[in-house]
Write a protein that binds this DNA or RNA. Structure first.
Lengths: 202, 202
DNA sequence: CGCTTAAGTGAGTGATCAATTACTCTCTTT
DNA sequence: AAAGAGAGTAATTGATCACTCACTTAAGCG
């Protein structure tokens, strides 16, 4: 969202920068996004960015913080609105898929950070985000077991890994086809399979 | 595998180069591997690489061709040795996981290529590889349906996506923990969940 | 209005990287 | 043993990138 307004206050400029990076990451390989490209999209000179961020890495940290905040907020809202643990899992799944379809750059960034070998601040932030996400899944799966919706003999850790992998598979399919919109269409069929994997045999 | 021999014949040098890139990709972000780093690992000067490859991109193409050849060969061997479609699916799964654990750089490369937005030769090769892989999965799942091992009401396309996603989830878990070895341990539990998702209810 | 402060400009700088090139070394073949 | 071909060296080139800085412009406030 390139604003026409000039001389934005610092916090707004930072927010616009984050939004711009998310937008650019949806169009190209995140690791190839240059500060010049970010600035150009914002109708700004490249040097101006460094008035608001001490380094390019700081920009990435701000972006990841934005993602963590918004994704987890949406997930929590989906969980609250659901009537049962299994319904909540489905709502989280569809929320996650919708988020990825809305901001296709986000999964690309997450992938990119994870495949980095060194333990950077960004990678640690991504790891923390996934940890919190996984925490919520564990809680739902355990609740589903006591509610009788999910088979008690299921390995909870494996079930969370499969949940994330299910989203992942959908994402990879979409990246292959270059069509993020199809994710929303294929999502329900994939979750149906996931439900078969974990449901109790009543 | 840096060879001590100097002045290798061209085809051997190309093979060593591919092996070196696969090795390096297991240690660092593939997109950050420089021609200087490859050469240095081979005890060679950077310029020498360009005697054998016209460009850096050509090196990547050779690496992806190597991956496609070896991964598919292992998968096909696993399928042939299995006694039933469902057993073959499990064998493919474990083979894939073992391959990723042996060459941790390979999934990193695949991810990296897929998240590239432009339609490069490398990305097309990765897409072709995944297409052939998916073809084999479709064949096994259809065979499993007629054999009564897999529920006929399953969406075959979704089942292949889930299969790949299952491996994917395992990989992401491993990349997060920085421990590729644990993949082999957690593999069976994950495939058990996948089996629950697709098996027939006899 | 005038002054202060924050935001933005635009031309750098040094580092890094893929690719090139002129030259040297090392095999193989006869 | 001589010679030619192929493999490797080492220095270089041009492009790109993150980051800097002296200067200019705009916004807000008494």
């Amino acid at each position: 969202m390139p604003s026409r307004a000039r001389n934005l206050p610092a916090d707004e400029r930072r927010a616009v920068t984050v939004a711009t990076v998310v937008e650019l990451a949806g169009e190209q390989n995140p690791s190839e996004i240059t500060t010049a490209a970010i600035a150009s999209r914002m109708n700004l000179t490249q040097g101006a960015l460094f008035r608001h961020f001490p380094s390019k890495d700081a920009i990435w940290q701000a972006v990841i913080a934005w993602v963590a905040e918004h994704l987890l907020a949406r997930v929590d809202r989906a969980i609250e609105a659901a009537g049962s643990p299994l319904a909540a899992l489905e709502a989280v799944f569809l929320t996650h898929v919708a988020f990825a379809a809305t901001y296709p750059g986000v999964p690309r960034m997450i992938f990119g950070e994870l495949q980095r070998a060194e333990d950077t601040t960004c990678k640690r932030m991504v790891r923390a985000l996934l940890g919190q996400y996984r925490e919520r899944l564990v809680r739902l799966i355990e609740a589903g077991k006591t509610a009788g919706e999910i088979a008690v003999e299921i390995d909870t850790a494996a079930a969370t890994t499969l949940f994330i992998g299910t989203v992942q598979g959908l994402l990879m399919q979409a990246m292959l086809a270059g069509d993020v919109g199809r994710m929303r269409v294929q999502g329900p069929a994939l979750f149906a399979l996931y439900r078969r994997a974990i449901r109790s045999m009543s």
